[in-house]
Each structure stands twice: as C-alpha cells, then as structure tokens.
C-alpha cells in the first residue's frame, strides 16, 4: 500500500504519494478527497509522485477521482516529479492529456 500525506503550503494542497499506489488505497484516498473539500482558501492541488515506485489502474482511477474533485472545487491540479515506471504508466494511460504533468 501507499503512504499518503497531505499538507497545505501557500494556498496549495500538496498530496505526497510513496510506495505502491493501488486499488487497496481507495478508502485511504477517499479521506483525502473529503479533506480537499474543506480546503478553504486553496487555489491549487499538487500531487508529488517523486517517491512513488508503482501505480496500477486502481491508482490511476483515484487520480481521475481527484481530478473530478479539483474541477468541482475550482483547484488547478498538477502531477509532479513522476519518474521511472510511474512516468511510463502515466504516458501509456495518456494522462498528460488530462493532467498538467510537471517534471
């Protein structure tokens, strides 16, 4: 399972994922989505993937749920620091067409 941390800095919600982000993290990530709705004053959400080793289709699905939530909350969403296998999986899933992917 993944370790999921959320912090707020300069009007930006930062979600840090590490380890393996899979379908088994769904309930944990749901709590993050709930937290996002209480993010008064925030204008952006950044997901830091630097320490993420693997993401599967369940993890991709949760990023799509996050995207929906950010659109609803009018937050600019970005995926940052993806590398290795995670970056390849994002490319294959064509997530660069759905998200702002920042190196």
């Amino acid at each position: 399972m993944s370790k999921v941390e959320i912090t707020t800095q300069n009007n930006t919600k930062k979600i840090t994922l590490s380890g393996h982000f899979t379908a088994m993290d769904h309930d944990q990530f749901r709590a993050i989505l709930d937290d996002l709705q209480s993010g008064e004053g925030c204008t952006a959400c950044a997901v830091d993937l630097e320490h993420l080793e693997f993401i599967d289709s369940g993890g991709l699905g949760m990023l799509l749920l996050l995207r929906d939530a950010c659109i609803k909350q009018k937050l600019a969403l970005s995926l940052t620091n993806a590398k290795g296998d995670v970056l390849r999986i994002l490319d294959i899933a064509k997530f660069d067409q759905l998200f702002k992917v920042v190196g």
């Binding site: 599967d56 289709s57 369940g58 991709l60 699905g61 799509l64 749920l65 999986i89 294959i92």
Partner: peptide, 14 residues
C-alpha cells in the same frame, strides 16, 4: 466505463 477498465487498456497496450 471510467475508473474501471484502465487496467485492461494498460494491458492491451503492453
């Protein structure tokens, strides 16, 4: 179906 068949899409491409 959104959120459901990304696994199949990944597998079909790989």
């Amino acid at each position: 179906i959104p959120h459901r068949i990304h696994g199949l899409r990944l597998m079909r491409q790989l």
